[in-house]
């Protein structure tokens, strides 16, 4: 879907209110994570196999199945992910099985973090977490940004949030 927008280029750093996508490398992060999960599942199946009589190829099947599901999922997930900073709010659109569109009015932003986990550091990525006072405040997380973009986004959001006058936070 959405073939007209440039898939492979990282999001532009300027705070223009265009729809932005994640860095394509995020797929690597997600696939790596699913490889880990698949390996774990396969190990689990192997461990079960030691106690219960199961076919020998079961661990391979479990791991392979998990991977076969996870890789397309990561790719589709990437294609579905987009976000935009508009004048009034931060918009997120994501989700494969359940699509979720979140509108975070800039006035409501409490604080913004840029974060780098171990896997993200390994792939040279970072994410940006936006907090609101809402009951599911930390739900708004934008993964797959280059560290500079994450910092930029943080600064932009901070500036916009202040401009939108961060009163009435609660």
């Amino acid at each position: 879907m959405n073939t007209d927008s440039p898939d492979e280029s990282p999001p532009p750093p300027d705070p223009a209110s265009t729809t932005r996508r994640l860095n394509p490398r995020i797929r690597v992060v997600w696939i790596l994570r699913s490889v880990l999960v698949a390996a774990l599942l396969a190990a689990l199946a192997a461990a079960v196999g030691r106690f219960v009589e199961t076919p020998r190829w079961l661990p391979a099947l479990v791991g392979g199945l998990a991977l076969a599901l996870a890789v397309p999922y990561a790719i589709v997930r990437y294609r579905r992910w987009s976000y935009a900073i508009r004048d009034d709010a931060l918009y997120l659109d994501r989700g494969v099985v359940t699509t979720v569109r979140t509108v975070v009015p800039l006035v409501r932003i409490q604080h913004v973090d840029s974060r780098r986990g171990p896997v993200e550091r390994a792939t040279g990525l970072a994410s940006c977490v936006v907090y609101t006072a809402g009951s599911r405040g930390a739900d708004v997380r934008i993964p797959g940004l280059t560290p500079e973009d994450a910092d930029d986004l943080r600064e932009t959001l901070k500036r916009l949030a202040i401009r939108a006058d961060g009163e009435d936070a609660v």
Partner: peptide, 30 residues
């Protein structure tokens, strides 16, 4: 955030112009 509003006033003059210049509507991909 509230305490920073004076900062905001300064930012506003410079940033508001460039931010408002680009008013492309956001389109949901789906």
């Amino acid at each position: 955030v509230e305490n920073d509003t004076s900062d905001a006033a300064e930012h506003r003059t410079s940033d508001a112009a460039e931010n408002e210049a680009a008013t492309g509507g956001f389109r949901w991909i789906a």
